[in-house]
Nucleic acid binder design. Sequence first.
DNA 1: CGGTTCGTGTAGCAAGCGCTACAACCGTGT
DNA 2: ACACGGTTGTAGCGCTTGCTACACGAACCG
Lengths: 175, 175
Amino acid sequence: MTIPEDKRALILDKLADHVLANGLSASSLRPLAKAAGTSDRMLLYYFADKGELVAAVLQHIAHRMVTLMEGAAAPEPLPYDALLSRLSAALSDPGFAPFMRVFLEVASGSANGDASLARIGETIGRGFLDWGKAQLKSDMPEEDAARLMVMLEGTVFLRAIGMGDVCERALRLKG
Amino acid sequence: MTIPEDKRALILDKLADHVLANGLSASSLRPLAKAAGTSDRMLLYYFADKGELVAAVLQHIAHRMVTLMEGAAAPEPLPYDALLSRLSAALSDPGFAPFMRVFLEVASGSANGDASLARIGETIGRGFLDWGKAQLKSDMPEEDAARLMVMLEGTVFLRAIGMGDVCERALRLKG
DNA sequence: CGGTTCGTGTAGCAAGCGCTACAACCGTGT
DNA sequence: ACACGGTTGTAGCGCTTGCTACACGAACCG
């Protein structure tokens, strides 16, 4: 009945590829199915409904992002200013940009009342926060990590609407 | 041919109400028409297509938001820290929240390639930046205003995914 | 060998989308 | 009185959406 657990894993990679490349809004069942080399009919055989499918894909994407971030980690803890500019640069890397795009889409959907997206968004966000905190060399890591997070997500937001220059200016002298 | 200029103004208020209340994603022609007390047929008589309609509504919303912000302006310029916490509180006000939700939706759409949304988002963003700068008492207003903007949009983003506590923590001691 | 369950393709549903063709209204100018 | 142009309703187009009913081969279990 509900045991196609491994079948899912086989296609999740391709589904994640498609979502990262085209965004959630362009990820209806049929395009997703084509990207995964199957049919919409089969997607709904593997997953109970689209919500469950999207949740699984986003979780998969989050896991991939964690891996990516581990590669971008600094070799040793950095003070706030240095870490901020380092991570800000990393997030604008073409490899990271697709993740930030869907993260924005998740936040938007979450703000519009999608409880499932909200849960996933928070999970990803908290993971990101913890990851940043671990890289901080600070005497008040909680506050600095929070401030770091706010700055970084603000950067994501502003770059999305073509205000990347403002982000650069914000980082130029102080954090 | 293209002269129903005032007719638009009469319904833009109601359209804006609906978009602010329900979000862009729930704003297809028929619901919008019902909210405005007309028909989808007439919406496309007043506006060339849906893109033009959305652009007009968002511009209207932006104008309304400017008015709202003028009401929230401090009586005199404030230093960075004080202004940040003042504006952060203002943005979480229920009166502002719908604007932030729509703004997030615009940023998301913009990041996904919608050029029209990108233009509008940037216009709104730059207006907001200038408005903030005018309220800043600082010896380096460009950089501080930019930093203020990044922090505020980061706050919007994080609150959307249920991480408002992180925003509070980020503001608690330093800006 | 028979029956039952698993897996999958085909086809289609009802709803919603942006948009449009067509006809009818209505007030105005001649 | 009549024609005409700006305005509006009706109806529907073609398409996409998430989802499902049904049939049929394969595989497994008795």
